[in-house]
Design a protein around this nucleic acid. Sequence first.
DNA 1: ACGCGCTTGTGAAGATGTGCACAAAACGGT
DNA 2: ACCGTTTTGTGCACATCTTCACAAGCGCGT
Lengths: 236, 236
Amino acid sequence: MTMTPRSSHSPNSRAGGRPGRRTGISEATVARLPVYLRVLTSLAESGVSTVSSEVLANAAGVGPAKLRKDLSHLGSYGTRGVGYDVEFLVYQISRALGLTQHYSVVIVGVGNLGQALAGYAGFGTRGFRVVGLLDADRARVGSLIAGIEVRHSDELETIISEHDVSIGVIATPAGAAQDVCDRLVGAGVTSVLNFAPVVLSVPDDVDVRKVDLSIELQILAFHEQRKSLVEQEAVG
Amino acid sequence: MTMTPRSSHSPNSRAGGRPGRRTGISEATVARLPVYLRVLTSLAESGVSTVSSEVLANAAGVGPAKLRKDLSHLGSYGTRGVGYDVEFLVYQISRALGLTQHYSVVIVGVGNLGQALAGYAGFGTRGFRVVGLLDADRARVGSLIAGIEVRHSDELETIISEHDVSIGVIATPAGAAQDVCDRLVGAGVTSVLNFAPVVLSVPDDVDVRKVDLSIELQILAFHEQRKSLVEQEAVG
DNA sequence: ACGCGCTTGTGAAGATGTGCACAAAACGGT
DNA sequence: ACCGTTTTGTGCACATCTTCACAAGCGCGT
């Protein structure tokens, strides 16, 4: 066979290699920061100005020690004996996550899922702006979804370079996903959020995150099965 | 305050405590098995009857050693010097995940996302059957989505007990999610897949998995930021 | 029948993530 | 000014996950 035996077997790999060596923030922590951020935002709206690690941790569904360790990676915000200043912490987490910058996003595939994503509140707020809704089906082109006009996939490269898009969301059928991904990457996108049930292959300097409904269901099925096995054993 | 200081701070907790002690399959492995399963199914459809760990691992986007260790937890299927029999492995993984049983699923919330989920192919196949589509909005009740009639949320308990539903999918707005979750759990559901951007609290014997679009985006933003920092440094 | 090349399965080492327990620090009341 | 209470920040031990490296096993050609 002609294919290189050693293609790419790094999991979430990005350019450098080791996670978090530069920033000191580990992958696991990064995955939890958005949760803290949401809880904090909600607290701020409720007029709370200070939280303890215990309260915040409970609201976020983690242990207090983990929370404190996570936050300590950003710096020593927080006052001993008192807690954390909500607004200040919101700002610090936002900054750590890079949400003080603005990112342009294109969504490719305007089926039910694509429409749901386009309308999703989380996209509009917090530094993300959907600058393109693309679909291969000309019947859908021209319609307005969440105030954005659907354009044809042919315009993918144009839109990406016009708006300096760095994040692409793939909500196409499985068959089209790799092609779309290649075009996104070719046009300069460096982060991809993939909803299609396929494993995408990309260069090392591109990040891919996968959201896969059927995988989540299957994981739940595993635990369901385990529960019923335990039940049977308890009976016997 | 009257609330118990120690509420629930276990991460994905289920009844027993330690993960995988009974089955010997670790959480990380379980999360990858569905990926292998999909790749294998696709290979089987292409007429491939045998794969090596290297080929399968590349197709699944993991390293070969990890793949072999994962599979070794299910048993010693696979032949040294040859590889794995595709069909046999499909069966074994399906069995390990509990997909040889059938699960009834209800989807609550029939907005764009709920509709996308209802139509999603992964739900119909592989042991899952959507037996209920529920919405609180009477304007939507009665319409047909993916061949299933939308019923009113009031019927939640009825449908769950009639069909012995064990898995509930929450695709409602954030505000309604915890109430819906409580009702699902109250009616006997033991696994929940949550798409609403809130942290659900449930009894220890109920599994919750969360899918959160805005969290995924924020994680990508973090890596984007890190990339641009590295760039700057390279220039300076 | 035998040896050679290939690929699995796995022990052991290393990396990453988690939880405990306590010292350090800040506030408030006296 | 000081002491007690509260809560952070973190060193350390433990658990989990990943990766390496290689022995054990299998099939094929001779």
